[in-house]
Amino acid sequence: MAGQLCWLFQFESDTEMILHLRLESHQPWKPYTAFPGLKVADYPIPRGSKGWATYQKLLKAGWTLIPTTMANKTFIEHSSLSLKIS
């Protein structure tokens, strides 16, 4: 199973980016921590990138990296849709 991955700002943060995943292109982006079967323990490096070890594993397994600018567009579209539905 190969999905998509990208780097987005952590929820309610505009300074720390973490790895986000989705299994299908029509699904919303979720932090890598929401996928316990896919994530790998983070490297014990102070201020290291959250999800870097998982990123390396999934990229090697054939996952596709989506540019942050493109992922942000779909992230905003999904967020707007959720607000309209509720």
Score class of each variant (00 low, 15 high):
18 I>T: 02
48 G>D: 12
28 P>L: 03
74 T>W: 04
10 Q>M: 11
75 F>S: 12
28 P>S: 10
21 L>W: 04
82 S>G: 05
16 E>A: 07
43 Y>M: 14
16 E>I: 12
78 H>R: 06
47 R>H: 15
84 K>Y: 05
47 R>D: 15
73 K>L: 09
84 K>M: 12
42 D>N: 14
48 G>F: 09
1 M>V: 11
81 L>W: 05
16 E>D: 11
36 P>Y: 10
8 L>C: 09
43 Y>P: 06
62 G>H: 00
86 S>W: 13
65 L>V: 09
2 A>Y: 01
76 I>P: 00
17 M>H: 05
33 T>N: 05
70 M>I: 08
83 L>C: 10
77 E>T: 08
46 P>G: 10
20 H>E: 03
83 L>N: 11
44 P>I: 05
19 L>E: 01
4 Q>H: 15
6 C>Q: 00
84 K>W: 01
19 L>R: 04
23 L>Y: 00
39 K>P: 03
81 L>Q: 09
1 M>T: 06
86 S>K: 14
58 L>R: 03
36 P>F: 12
27 Q>L: 13
44 P>K: 14
14 D>P: 09
6 C>A: 10
27 Q>W: 09
62 G>P: 02
3 G>W: 00
52 W>T: 05
12 E>T: 13
85 I>G: 01
22 R>E: 02
63 W>N: 03
35 F>K: 00
58 L>I: 03
40 V>A: 10
54 T>L: 09
78 H>C: 03
40 V>D: 02
17 M>W: 03
62 G>T: 05
76 I>E: 11
54 T>M: 08
33 T>K: 06
13 S>F: 08
58 L>D: 02
81 L>V: 01
86 S>C: 08
31 P>S: 11
85 I>Q: 13
18 I>F: 01
57 K>S: 15
59 L>C: 13
10 Q>V: 09
38 L>N: 01
41 A>D: 15
20 H>D: 00
4 Q>V: 00
16 E>G: 00
33 T>V: 11
27 Q>M: 14
63 W>Y: 09
53 A>D: 12
47 R>N: 13
1 M>E: 11
63 W>G: 00
84 K>E: 10
14 D>I: 06
51 G>P: 05
27 Q>H: 14
23 L>Q: 07
82 S>P: 03
34 A>S: 12
86 S>I: 09
69 T>A: 11
81 L>E: 03
53 A>F: 04
55 Y>E: 14
48 G>L: 07
79 S>C: 08
7 W>A: 08
